[in-house]
Every structure is written in structure tokens, then in C-alpha cells.
């Protein structure tokens, strides 16, 4: 089975912003497969490019301030060069482009976005986002077990 990299990111101390981070944390508890690497990050950073370049497929999971809270969207990502702000913070598309540019390979990539409602200080997810997190964890666990990724 080809190597899959899962990166859930966000600030777990800012309410629903931590949804992606939480998905990664829960998946790590449930999945024990050497071919699946799971990272939970506060934010995306350029150092991830090397790990991304080694993967056959990468799944990004992030929260969003727009959209209906808890309604998860899934899109396929394409590499795209970074904007001028690319310093120690990056977009998934920029990391994919960087992986190609520096390490000669960029994997297939998917982004799951979980819209949130409350982004104030606190570790609690709002109920609809909590449900979405649990559903996404269950879905990914099932799909990864079936080798659908």
C-alpha cells in the first residue's frame, strides 16, 4: 500500500479552528498502520515539504471561517506557487509546489475543510463541528482501511 500522509492543522486553543488538528489526533489514536503517517500541526510550515514529497497521497484537514458550520467539503488540490507572505506559514498548494520544486515529486492531494462557528479562545468545539469531526474521522478510517486512498 502506498504511503499516505495526513496533516490536520489549526489552533486547538481557538475553538473550532482546532477541528483539523482534532481529526488528526483522533485518527492517530485509531490507525496503527506503518504506511499511514499522521501529523497534527498548529499551522502549515515549509519543513513539511520534504515529508509531502515522500508521500503517494496527502490529505490536508483544516477549519474554515466561511461556509455552514459542520458542513465538510472535499476538494482535490493542485500545486500553486506561494504568495509573498510565505514565511513560516504556508498554504497546502504552496507546500505541494515546493515539494515538486525542491524534491522533485508532489503527491496527489485532497483538502477537507470543516467550516466552524466559534473561533474565540477555548478548547471546545461547537456541537455541529464536533459532529463533523467525528463523522470525518469515521469516514477516513473506513476508507483508509479499505485502501481507497
Amino acid at each position: 500500500m502506498p504511503h499516505t500522509l495526513i496533516i490536520g492543522y489549526g489552533n486547538a486553543l481557538r475553538g473550532d479552528d482546532g477541528a483539523g488538528y482534532m481529526v488528526a489526533e483522533l485518527l492517530r489514536e485509531r490507525i496503527q498502520d506503518p504506511e499511514i503517517e499522521i501529523l497534527s500541526q498548529q499551522q502549515l510550515v515549509p519543513e513539511l515539504m520534504e515529508a509531502i514529497s515522500h508521500a503517494a497521497h496527502v490529505i490536508f484537514i483544516d477549519a474554515s471561517v466561511s461556509g455552514r458550520a459542520g458542513k465538510v467539503t472535499r476538494i482535490v488540490l493542485r500545486p500553486a506557487p506561494a504568495c509573498a507572505h510565505f514565511t513560516h506559514h504556508a498554504t497546502p498548494e504552496a507546500l505541494l509546489a515546493g515539494a515538486q520544486s525542491l524534491y522533485g515529486h508532489t503527491p496527489e492531494a485532497t483538502l477537507y475543510t470543516i467550516p466552524g462557528r466559534f473561533f474565540e479562545t477555548g478548547e471546545e468545539l461547537s456541537p455541529s463541528v464536533r459532529r463533523a469531526v467525528n463523522e470525518l474521522v469515521a469516514t477516513l478510517e473506513k476508507e483508509l482501511a479499505a485502501g481507497e486512498r
Binding site: 506561494a82 509573498a84 510565505f86 514565511t87 509546489a97 520544486s101 525542491l102
Partner: peptide
């Protein structure tokens, strides 16, 4: 060019 004057520009100029 400020649009390219970032670490991504560095990647292109000197990988």
C-alpha cells in the same frame, strides 16, 4: 520583485 521576494522565490533561484 516583492511578489517573488520570499522563500518560494529562493526555492526557484537557489533550490
Amino acid at each position: 520583485d516583492p511578489a517573488a521576494r520570499n522563500v518560494f522565490g529562493v526555492m526557484e533561484a537557489n533550490p
